[in-house]
């Protein structure tokens, strides 16, 4: 699915909210979408938010690595936010942590708990 991109011009942070399944079939379209936004805003930090990602294979790893390289060309950094446990495991298997920080935000924690049913 096409990611939603948000740009914070004050802090120069481009956030891409990734959604659904990331495989070889849709990785190209997601990549184009993010790269257009990087080109437009020249952010200092690219935040790839995985809160809405339900499945990912090595195409997702390639996507993160590719954006990391692109950001690096202009001295920018990349951060991965809120991946699910199984997706985080896949990222660790690929040693993605050596390139980008993997972090969890309060925003996503709030979203996750609001989705839970109150007993």
């Amino acid at each position: 699915m096409i990611p939603i991109t948000e740009y914070d011009s004050e802090r120069k942070i481009l956030t891409a909210l990734l959604q659904g399944e990331i495989d070889h079939h849709c990785a190209g379209e997601i990549r184009r979408c993010i790269d257009i936004a990087i080109d437009k805003y020249s952010p200092e930090l690219l935040a790839l938010d995985f809160s809405g990602v339900t499945f990912m294979d090595s195409s997702g790893i390639g996507l993160v690595m590719g954006r990391y390289k692109l950001m690096k060309e202009t001295g920018g950094e990349t951060i991965v936010l809120n991946p699910r446990d199984d997706i985080r495991k896949l990222m660790e298997l690929a040693s993605l942590g050596r390139l980008t920080k993997i972090a969890y935000t309060a925003h996503s924690a709030a979203k996750a708990s609001s989705g839970r049913k109150v007993p």
């Binding site: 070889h24 294979d57 090595s58 195409s59 390639g62 996507l63 590719g66 690929a94």
Partner: peptide, 10 residues
């Protein structure tokens, strides 16, 4: 094509 080369490893 940004293939990570991790298919078989996974």
């Amino acid at each position: 094509e940004e293939r990570a080369g991790l298919g078989f490893a996974i």
